[in-house]
Every structure is written in structure tokens, then in C-alpha cells.
Write a protein that binds this DNA or RNA. Sequence first.
DNA 1: GATCATACGATCGTCACTATTCATAGTGA
Length: 570
Amino acid sequence: MGMTNEQIARVFDEIADMLEVSGDDFFRVRAYRNAARTVRECATSLSTMTPSQIRELPGIGEDLASKIETLIKTGELPLHRELSRKVPPGLVALLRVPGLGPKRVRALNQELGVRDLNTLKSALESGGIAKLKGFGPKLEQHLRQYLAQLDNKTPERLRYVDAAAIVAQLIGHMKKSSAIVRLEVAGSFRRKKDTVGDLDVLVESTEPEAVADALISFPMVKEVVARGETKTSVILQNGFQIDLRVVSRQSFGAALIYFTGSKAHGVHLRRIAQRKGLLLNEYGLYREGKMIAGQDEEGIYRALGLAWIPPELREDRGEIEAAELGRLPRLLELEDMRGDLHTHTTWTDGRATLEEMALAASARGLEYIAVTDHSRRLAMVHGLDPKRLREQWREIEKVQAKVPNVKLLRGIEVDIMEDGSLDLPNDVLAELDWVVASVHYKLNQAPNAMTKRLIKAIRNPHVDVIGHPTGRLINQREPSNFDLDEVLRVCREEGCALEVNSQPDRLDLNDVACLSAKRAGVRLVISTDAHHPRDFAAIEFGVSQARRGWIEAADVLNTRPLNELLRLRR
DNA sequence: GATCATACGATCGTCACTATTCATAGTGA
């Protein structure tokens, strides 16, 4: 049978969710969550491990080991099946509603028969929720607001990273077809937008039928919505749509421009073509009915008098004017990144030891990393107080001796308190090589208060950079509201940098804010916020956002060699 | 459910904030 670690982890996570709303023992729930995490992070496939090796994993005892064995052998688990039968599927989703946890969800279910978002809505309409034990008028009001906001939300777009995972599988599958000469994924995916609504797949082929068949046989496909001569559309099990277009070699470049977009970019290009007495469409660039370009993008841009424009810039935010003048930015490249200035270890909520992180950084060829664990305000992750921070410095010294080729900077991710003060005293901060200051709670402060809070932190001379400045979590949490221009002004004045956090659900600052920062003369830091060795790879996503924001290597502090970086500190 | 270790039974990351029960349960980071 065989199951991937991710699949096993998911079963355990679902069991934990279902046990939780069933009101099962909290520690049992946590045991399943821990196990899910262990399995997910295990570097070798559990299907290839012996039972005794599995038993040795931390948090996996006799019982869970045998459950894993059952899963690998049969692909399912009686406990999971039984719980799925007992617990309404929509009930688990209610745990994600702010203000609702296992206890309240259970109460809603037992007292009012609430099973999912819809029945919750009816319960709110018919009243009575506020009378439930543990519920009151305030909470009822919050729930109403939340549900109303859900209603006007546009359908969810996938995070770039999730789209990328689908693309990787899709390409692996399609490449097996010999009918495909060339394949490119266009659309917002190619422009590296932080979220992707659907996939536009462009294929060069002389056998459109065979290419369509290849797409339709992709295992994730749930439904074929359209099938024509050159266009096929399918919907995947997760609701994501893929549009396939088969084009000829001579039109490939024109189609690539057309389907990469953005729409505004395309409109602007066609206007330029018109001005020159040309016609641009998805098949090519024509003069008096005769094709003069179309096979590749460069040729079309050239014929329009433009330099080739990187997809990340194609938003009609001035890139066409810049291309006309030969003044396109020389965008930041992945290879420009020399160090990572935001990382965590097992001293707080990291999942790997300082040594493991240092070795991973070395393996990736990084020149330096800042070890920036949390400060004490984040009690849940056992945030560092001055005493433990100093203890960490001793370990940094020891690990540095073992891993000499990556410079380990003594850092902190210090919490910005509600009033803008910092969670560690200045004399301690003064001893550090690198200080990231971040907001982790009370993210929904009024805009004025949040602006003041950030500015006070920026004015602290020890702060090098503000971490994940808006606090947004893609599809989960809105960015906090503050006056970005004012914050940028003070950053510029104080020489404080802003972070582009590369975690796939943060990407914070986003592309537009990167551009604003650049225009305001504020330096950026692109970091991964790595909690695990494999997180270092996420730098790719931060770099993409920065590229979308016209960022060049010179705009980013951690493209510099170490000595230059330290000199540039304020 | 795992772990530790008085080898059975206790312990398992903490703390601040919110709403309601105004001292405490529930939630969230």
C-alpha cells in the first residue's frame, strides 16, 4: 500500500481535530498533533522504515507506531473511520471560527444542533446563542460579524506555494506524453503573484487531442468542464481550475504573452502595437495581415521597441515605459542572497537545534545567519529572557567553532509590546549583532495606535529591522492597519529596515509595499523566518515578491557580504 | 497517547486577554 509521511500526518491531524470537538482528553489530542508534526518532519519515508525505527521517533509510542503500521499496510485506520462517522464534517471547520474552540463548538452542537457554518448561521438568526452557558451578547455579535464577512469574501485563491506543488505534479504527469514539445505555465503563477486563482497551461504540440487526454488523465482531476479543439478546462478535487491551451510553434511567444498577462499589461502592449500600425493578439504580431513576430516573447517585445520584460513586472505599473527607455531594473536574483537574518531554533519554537540549523545554512552556501529566537512575551514558545538569551550565546560560540564557514550572528526576534516598547531592555539589545522587532499580539489595534506602536519600535536605535510588518497570513488573517507612508518615512529617517518574510503564508511585506519602500529609500531584508532546515528554501518566495516590487540587489541588506552588512547597521 | 521511572500513575511549554460566570473558563499566540 504505502503512504507518504504527509498523508499519515494528515490522518493524525484529522483525528486530533475530531477528538477535540468530541471533547476528548486534551493531552490525547495533543499526542496526535505532536505525532502528526513528527511524521511530517521526518526526513525518511515511514513506509521504508522498520517498526522498531518508527517506534523510536519522539512522541511515537507503542500505540501510535502500530497505527502507523496499519495505515501503511491498509491505507486506513479504524479509529479515523469511526470518528469520521461520528463527527459531522462541518463541525471541525467551526474550530477555525475566531472565538470558538472545542468547548464552545461542542456546546453549540449539543444544545442547538449546530453542525456547520450554515446551521451556525440559522442558530444566530433564531437567537438563543447568547443564552448558552459561556456565550453572551458580545460573542454573539462577533460571530455575526465574522459570518457576514465570510459571505462577501471572494472565493479563495491558492497560496503560490500550493499552486507550485500542483504545478510540479502536473508537469511530472504531462511530460510523460510524447505529444508535448514545450510546456509553460502562464498566468499569475508565472508572474509569481502571492496567490493564484487558476492555472493557465500552454503547450506547444501538433497533436492537441493527445495533450488534452494527458491533462484529463491527471489523477487530481475531478471534472472536465470544457473540451474543445485547442482548449480544455478541468477542475481538480480541491476546486482549483486548470485551463489548457495547445498552440503552434509560431504562435507560442504571442500566446505566452497573452496568457501570462496581466490583463492591464496586455492592453497596454496592444495599444503600443496599434500606435505603430501593428496588430497584437494571442497568435502573433502582424503588420498588414502578415506575421512579423510570434514564436518567442523577445521577438514581439523587440518589434514593439521594448526590452523583454520579466513576468514578475507585468502589472502595468510603469514597466512598459521603463522597457521603452531601456531602464528596466536589474531584478534581484536568488543567487544574490548571501545570508538569512531571521531564523529560529529549539531554544524557542524552532524544530531543529542551533547546530542543525547552522549545518543546513552551510549546506545551502549561506555566508551568515542571525539566530533570532523569540523573546519572553511569547510565553507559549518559551521565549527568551535576558538570562536564557545569554546562555544561548554560549551555545552559539560552541556551534560556531564546529561550523566555521557560516557566521552565526547573535540575534533576537523581540516582541513589540502594545505601546511600542520592546520586550527586552535596551542594554541587552545593545549586546546583540542583529535585532528583529515584530508584532505578535494585538494585531487588530486601531490604525493610529498601530502606526504609533511601530514607529516607537523603529525609533529604538537597537532595532535593525521590523519583522513581518503587517502580520498578515494569506487566506487567514488580514494585514494590520497602519499608515505605511508614515512608517516608511520614519524608517528612512532612522535607517531601520523592513523585512520581506518569505514564509509562504506571510510574504509580508507584499509586492506593492516593497515598491513603496524602495521609492521611500527604505532598505529591505529578505529572510525566511526558518523554523526548520528545509525552511531555508522558502527564500525563493520572498525573492519573488521583492522582484514583483522592482527590488534590485542593492535595495536588500542581506545581499551584502557580512562586513558590509555590519557596517550598514545603524 | 507518550513519557518518565516511587514501574503506577502523575505529568505533559505559558500566560494575557476577553467575556461573562465579575473570579473564572475559554481562547489564542
